[in-house]
Design a protein around this nucleic acid. Structure first.
Lengths: 187, 187
DNA sequence: CGGCGCATGTAACTTGTTACATGATTCC
DNA sequence: GGAATCATGTAACAAGTTACATGCGCCG
């Protein structure tokens, strides 16, 4: 039922290009951060298991002056596993926003502290939206269109829409909390 | 650093009213589902720990014909812990949307299968938005305004905005995938 | 030569889910 | 009488994070 998702992120990215664990992690951070994350503690053991199962192959590159690193490639069996996952209906989503919990209970503590946290939330999503816009421009600028560019643009669009929703909401809510604070100060 | 959040959900909800573990779980499912979740496997051990630490007290209600159940109340120490958490800046957010991963890699599998999963995603968020609208109407309808009604309405508004963003995006993306599919069928 | 980025890995830990066990009450 | 809901709990497991250990290569 649960099936580890880490492996499919790996398989998916290896379909595009051969990568080291380190490079793969960087790509996840850069492109997926708004909807996905993986830590080394998940990745390296997953590489090991995938290699043992024959879904990827590892090649030690030591040539020239470079230090040893392991570059992974996907196998035919790996491609099949990836396609199999894409067919599966599961699709678990998990969202946890502590800030909403805090806002919900904000009456029971210091309003200003919660407001500050909302401001941090705002800044973070502003940054996220900025990165997504950059990424979009970068992709759109490429003349010769890679097979999955349009798919990726759809993913980016999701992030943009959701982040704009967060920012909208956040401005309103910060204003509300500040109003609430000064209103209560009057009493 | 990490600090268990389960306990703060419990403390927050107990500030509003005394509850059994079961009731508390129901409330989380009903009101928090779009941004938070807890399982019994987390809740009951947390109640135990909170009781031992003196942040909540447990009362066995057995009166009348009812079967035994344990109603928890928050203590003064518990209120302080809640306020302390509200002051802390941490505020971790975690989002994991498998559907975006699948869309990103959709070239490497069956487009129709992914489209179906997007349709399920759409339906789920339509349902979520519907529930939020209901909840909003319910709260707004109450004349005598409870202290934190407006805060809760802000939380609901976040869910509404984000869900509308999802639905917008989803319609566009389903149309895109269907177009992509038929376009490729021509070749 | 110090710091940063590249690079790999693991052990200990925390967090969270699932399946199971149990049984009362309520409503049809 | 049977299904749904109320109600409590745990054990086994799966998932995920963090801190640490190690060390090369490059740039200033």
């Amino acid at each position: 039922m649960s099936e580890n998702r880490t492996r499919y992120v790996i398989l998916g990215l290896l379909t595009e290009e051969n990568l080291t664990g380190y490079e793969l992690k960087k790509i996840i951070e850069l492109r997926f951060s708004f909807f996905w994350s993986e830590s080394y503690g998940q990745l390296y053991p997953a590489f090991k298991a995938l290699t043992e199962e024959g879904l990827v192959t590892a090649k030690n590159q030591e040539g020239e002056s470079r230090r040893a690193k392991t570059v992974y490639s996907i196998t035919e069996k790996g491609r099949e596993a990836l396609a199999g996952w894409l067919r599966e209906p599961s699709c678990k989503e998990s969202v946890r926003l502590e800030i909403l919990l805090k806002l919900y209970f904000s009456r029971y503590g210091d309003v200003n502290a919660v407001t500050e946290q909302l401001e941090a939330f705002f800044a973070e999503h502003q940054r996220q939206l900025y990165m997504l816009n950059l990424f979009e421009t970068e992709l759109s600028g490429i003349e010769e269109e890679h097979a999955n560019h349009r798919d990726i643009l759809r993913v980016i669009d999701c992030g943009q829409k959701v982040n704009r929703a967060y920012l909208d909401w956040c401005s309103e809510t910060i204003a509300y909390l500040k109003g609430r604070d000064s209103h209560e100060a009057e009493n």
